[in-house]
Simulated assay, not measured.
Amino acid sequence: MSVLTASGITVRPVTGGRAILEDAAIEVRPGEVHALVGPNGAGKSTMFAVLAGDVSPESGFVSIDGRPLDAMRPRDLARIRTVLLQENTVSFPFSAEEVVRMGRAPWARTPLEADDDAVVTASMRATEVAELAHRSVSSLSGGERARVALARALAQSTPILLLDEPTAALDLRHHEDVMRLLRASADAGTAVAVVLHDLNAALAHADRLTLLASGRVIATGSPAQVLTAERIAQVYGQRVEVFPHPTTGVPLVVAQR
């Protein structure tokens, strides 16, 4: 189990100007789903890229279990954290199974390589893409490609899972299926960080939540503590009502119309 920590993160555009992120911090813990939410342009995807090691901040520190991210070799990093981007373009006619199998690449020439077939099969079944195994990824719908990409991420089998809007292209059932898979991964000990636009999904499935706006962390805590009607109105510029679901008691966000 591993803890991913970022503190004092400031990122500016290459051309200079106002910071995209300023003095931002987050801690992604084992056994938790940590959602990053905020309006467009809040800095969510930049924070995600910093956590993944794809963007180097101007200042601040990113570490896994106290070890600086930029001191880790790419192969070692690939065995600790998995990154699922919002866009997953495949330029060659790989089959769905071949794409999922790519997730096992970090474990090549290790004892865990023996688990490849079983892990790939389990990941494809969990995301309901087993029947697409021999289909070319380029022939799949956007939602099908998104589920294949998620299967690849799950097949990588790392203690940290980072996902940027994994439900954006999915219908209602598959949206809920993905969130349940993330919940199950966290319950098994994985540290899960996920960028979400759906505030109700964050309230229903996340353990912790970081709300960003204009490049700054506005609040971090339990979803119910962070996503109050007053704070949502302040950050999103939209008045809402927040009330408990009549059956589950989980808070619901509804825009005032």
Rank of each mutant, 00 (worst) to 15 (best):
L112G: 13
A186D: 12
A191N: 06
L172C: 12
T121Y: 13
G103L: 02
A24M: 06
G60M: 01
A155K: 04
P57E: 04
L181E: 14
R125C: 13
V3M: 08
A255M: 11
R101V: 04
L161V: 14
P93C: 02
V62R: 03
E87D: 15
E58S: 09
T127D: 07
P111F: 02
D207F: 12
A133Q: 12
Y236H: 13
E230N: 04
G249Q: 01
R231G: 02
R231N: 06
L4T: 03
V100P: 07
D171C: 10
A233W: 02
V55L: 14
F243P: 05
E97L: 13
G8R: 11
S214F: 10
L150S: 02
R109D: 14
R81M: 11
L21D: 08
R29C: 08
L252H: 00
L252T: 05
G8M: 05
H175P: 00
E113R: 07
P111Y: 03
H175D: 00
Q156W: 06
Q238T: 15
F48W: 03
L227V: 00
L69F: 10
E97M: 12
A206T: 04
R208L: 10
L212G: 08
D23I: 05
G237M: 11
A193G: 10
S141N: 08
L36P: 04
L69K: 08
A6H: 10
G53P: 11
T121H: 15
P74G: 07
L85S: 14
A255W: 07
L162V: 02
A202E: 10
I232N: 01
L4R: 07
F92E: 08
V250S: 09
G189I: 10
H205P: 01
L170K: 00
L252W: 04
G142V: 12
A191D: 04
V83L: 13
A191K: 11
A130E: 15
V217R: 06
G215V: 11
R29L: 13
R239V: 14
A118Q: 13
L51T: 00
A96C: 15
T110N: 03
V11E: 01
G249V: 02
L181G: 13
A168S: 15
Q225Y: 05
A78K: 04
V253L: 03
A25D: 14
D207E: 10
A108V: 11
R208I: 02
D23R: 07
S2E: 06
L140H: 09
A168C: 12
P106N: 08
L172I: 15
H134D: 15
G31L: 06
S141C: 05
Q238W: 01
E22K: 07
S95A: 11
L154S: 04
I9H: 00
T5P: 01
V28T: 03
G53Q: 07
A188Q: 15
L77S: 12
V100E: 10
P74W: 11
V192F: 07
V129N: 12
D117N: 10
A108Y: 07
A35Q: 00
